[in-house]
Nucleic acid binder design. Sequence first.
DNA 1: CAGGCCTGATACCGCGGCGGTATGACACCA
DNA 2: TGGTGTCATACCGCCGCGGTATCAGGCCTG
Lengths: 281, 281
Amino acid sequence: METRELRYFVAVAEESHIGRAAERLGIAQPPLSRAIAQLERRLGAELFVRTPRGVTLTSAGETLLSEGRAALAAIEAAERRTRRTVANAGRASVVLTAKAGASSELMAKLLDAYAAEPDAVDVEVVLSPPGHQAPMLRDGRADVAILHRPFDDLSGFDTDPLNVEGQVLVLPAGHPLSTRSSITLAEATSIPDLPLPRWPRLDGSYPDGPGPELRDQTQVLQLVRLGRTAIVLPESAQANLHSELTVVPVSDAPQVTTVIAWPPHSTSPGVAGLVRTAARL
Amino acid sequence: METRELRYFVAVAEESHIGRAAERLGIAQPPLSRAIAQLERRLGAELFVRTPRGVTLTSAGETLLSEGRAALAAIEAAERRTRRTVANAGRASVVLTAKAGASSELMAKLLDAYAAEPDAVDVEVVLSPPGHQAPMLRDGRADVAILHRPFDDLSGFDTDPLNVEGQVLVLPAGHPLSTRSSITLAEATSIPDLPLPRWPRLDGSYPDGPGPELRDQTQVLQLVRLGRTAIVLPESAQANLHSELTVVPVSDAPQVTTVIAWPPHSTSPGVAGLVRTAARL
DNA sequence: CAGGCCTGATACCGCGGCGGTATGACACCA
DNA sequence: TGGTGTCATACCGCCGCGGTATCAGGCCTG
């Protein structure tokens, strides 16, 4: 199976429409029809059922879509990491990605400690929106990441835990609940006058709901100060809190584990060094 | 990057010789030279240094070799699993692989318990030589595997532990050491009159050493009975022991964890069911 | 119920690129 | 210094990809 065929297949699966997929791929419809038919013949599997409205995936197609996406990510990763290897000709470097605004204290400690190592290489830090770190690691845009369980999908990576912490509810300073010594998750998520904020999905769209649409922690904390919302965050987020805010521990919220993650077959000495340093923190 | 180019590159990297690689690929040498040169141009990276004796990998080439192997395995997996999905048209099935002769009791329990599930699918059990399970999982020949830490490389898989056990030294019944109540790993691996057996590598070749060359546990136990070797095995292997053999616990041998492992992006309901059943054992 | 409109499939064509053979350039060695 | 082995280059034929034109068929609508 060639990469091109796989890309074609994924495009058609995502569009559920051969014509639109062809447009997106920058080719005409007939060659795409033919390529899909040929792929089906070679695999000995019906991948789509053709309908007058477009096409829909068969169960074999579902399998190929999930497996194929992983394979395409692996190929992109191979390409990107090879290009990067030669770009920093001779002396290596490594790309670390983390959620913007999270674990900054921990990361500072890690980067300082690593930079002090005798064989340290350059570390390029890429801060990106929540949920984008794992895909970047999968397709080679990053070599190592700081992730948070249970929020991020760690599957397929090697990981080492760096820190475990509980979660707290952040409230406007004067709120009635702010005198409580602790609170349950059920209570925290159903405060009558404070709807929880909504966060963007990976594609940038927002789920439905009553709360405000928000993109980062700074925005949230500002709205909490204004008494418009409340938010459950890991304890370490307290470091960023300004005045006019109080926190109440959430007794039954899941523990948040900060981990350092890397692709399992990584051979980069920079990644190995970072992980070794992290293990000593 | 096309699959074909990647396959060509891996062949050349493995042979360190364009002519031999071409022969292995079933094409002539000049097109292969050209394909590699074109790949290097497109990636903007020197992958090989040409010598009069053949070619050797650059650091960019090393990167592409390890990343590319993983990518090729992912593509093979996509192909194989898609073919298998359609082969069992409609009612799904799942391929489970395990080391021949290991954990048989545990597996029997697992398979029985799973078969009793209301939504159980067919499970095809593939027993293969030690070390072959993880590659089979990576390239789609299997959907789920029983592996043993620390012997197998679990990286890149999701896993659940099934069992933890210590290790014992298996000796001929009358051996002087057989009266000991425990023994250290250092002692066990340097018994003067009993050299440890050698196991085949993944490619079938054997490491150098004094011990006998062996392929499976039955052969080993026979040779132990004959007083020609000794072997350190997980406790559960005692179930297979015949008479004329005794065991001595090895006090400082690493614990052996039996795990069930599956590819992280698996969507197979059969795999999910097996894992769920395994978690309840 | 007929005609337009949407879908994907088929027919046919031109050309880029892959693989083939023949040969060159060059390092090493006897 | 010629022989031998390596990879690179030159040139050619053909397969297959992508293009346009058109067909086949389900669905909606007047």
